[in-house]
Amino acid sequence: MAQTLPKPALRPLLPADVAVLAAILVAAVEQLTGEDYSASQQEAWAATADDEEAFGKRLASQLTLVATLQNSPVGFASLKGADHIDMLYVHPGVAGQGIGSMLCDALERLAGGRGAKKLTVEASDNAEPFFAKRGYVASQRNTVNVNGEWLANTTMQKSLSEQKGATQ
């Protein structure tokens, strides 16, 4: 007999989520970005979540959604302002199971609801194919200094206007 898998759910950020979301960011960076970034780059990137108070303030200052499976957080995404995806991380244990797409779908709907005509993201090299598949178009390559290490990413943009009525 086939077993029914638990359905993922979305909810707003809760103050108690900060430590587990920091752990998800670290796990995602350490386990999912090795083909695109060196060990020292991964270490510097993961360290952005070391200061949980600062990380929590960053999450709380944005519209942050938490993806859960059986009420346990497994991913999160944040919308900075009305039109910029600042963070989108999924725990490696559930990568490729639609959690990232569910989070991105929700941010796109929320951004559109806030009047955004387009959505931008600075996609890491490992996330660029995910966003490209969703209709985001690369507009420029960037090199950013993160905790003393230089990391490359790509600014990508998606027009939200063609979605009106399509997702209702």
Rank of each mutant, 00 (worst) to 15 (best):
Thr4Leu: 13
Leu5Phe: 06
Pro6Gln: 09
Pro6Ser: 11
Lys7Cys: 11
Pro8Ser: 15
Leu10His: 09
Leu10Lys: 02
Arg11Gln: 13
Arg11Val: 06
Pro12Asn: 07
Pro12Met: 03
Leu13Cys: 04
Leu13Asp: 04
Leu14Gln: 15
Pro15Phe: 07
Ala16Pro: 00
Ala19Gly: 04
Ala19Lys: 00
Leu21Gln: 05
Ala22Gly: 13
Ala22Tyr: 01
Ile24Val: 12
Val26Gln: 11
Val29Trp: 01
Glu35Met: 00
Glu35Leu: 01
Asp36Pro: 03
Ala39Asp: 13
Ala39Gln: 09
Ala39Arg: 14
Ala39Trp: 07
Gln41Tyr: 14
Glu43Phe: 05
Ala44Gly: 14
Ala44Val: 00
Ala44Leu: 10
Trp45Lys: 06
Trp45His: 08
Ala46Ile: 03
Thr48Lys: 01
Asp50Cys: 11
Glu52Val: 07
Ala54Arg: 14
Phe55Asn: 04
Lys57Asp: 15
Arg58Trp: 06
Leu59Gly: 13
Ala60Glu: 15
Ser61Asp: 15
Leu65Thr: 08
Leu65Gln: 10
Leu65Tyr: 00
Val66Lys: 03
Val66Gln: 01
Thr68Arg: 02
Leu69Tyr: 03
Gln70Glu: 15
Ser72Trp: 01
Val74Ser: 04
Val74Met: 02
Gly75Ser: 12
Phe76His: 09
Ala77Leu: 05
Lys80His: 05
His84Glu: 13
His84Thr: 12
His84Asn: 12
Ile85Gly: 08
Ile85Gln: 07
Asp86Val: 02
Asp86Ala: 15
Met87Tyr: 06
Leu88Lys: 02
His91Ser: 10
Pro92Val: 02
Gly93Leu: 01
Ala95Ser: 14
Gly96His: 03
Gln97Ile: 00
Ser101Phe: 05
Met102Asn: 08
Leu103Glu: 09
Leu103Trp: 13
Cys104Ala: 14
Glu108Val: 05
Glu108Pro: 09
Glu108Leu: 04
Glu108Trp: 05
Arg109His: 04
Gly112Phe: 07
Gly115Arg: 13
Gly115Asp: 06
Ala116Arg: 03
Ala116Gly: 08
Leu119Asn: 10
Leu119Gln: 09
Thr120Gln: 12
Val121Gln: 00
Val121Leu: 07
Glu122Met: 02
Glu122Pro: 00
Glu122Ile: 01
Glu122Gln: 11
Ala123His: 04
Asp125Asn: 11
Asp125Gly: 02
Ala127Gly: 12
Glu128Asp: 04
Pro129Tyr: 08
Phe131Glu: 05
Tyr136His: 08
Tyr136Pro: 08
Tyr136Ile: 03
Ser139Asn: 06
Ser139Tyr: 07
Ser139Ala: 00
Thr143Phe: 14
Thr143Glu: 15
Val144Trp: 01
Val146Phe: 06
Asn147Phe: 05
Gly148Asn: 10
Trp150Cys: 04
Trp150Thr: 09
Leu151Arg: 10
Leu151Glu: 01
Leu151Gln: 06
Ala152Lys: 14
Ala152Cys: 06
Ala152Trp: 05
Thr154Leu: 10
Met156Pro: 10
Ser159Ile: 00
Ser159Pro: 00
Ser161Asp: 13
Gly165Asn: 12
Gly165Ile: 05
Ala166Tyr: 07
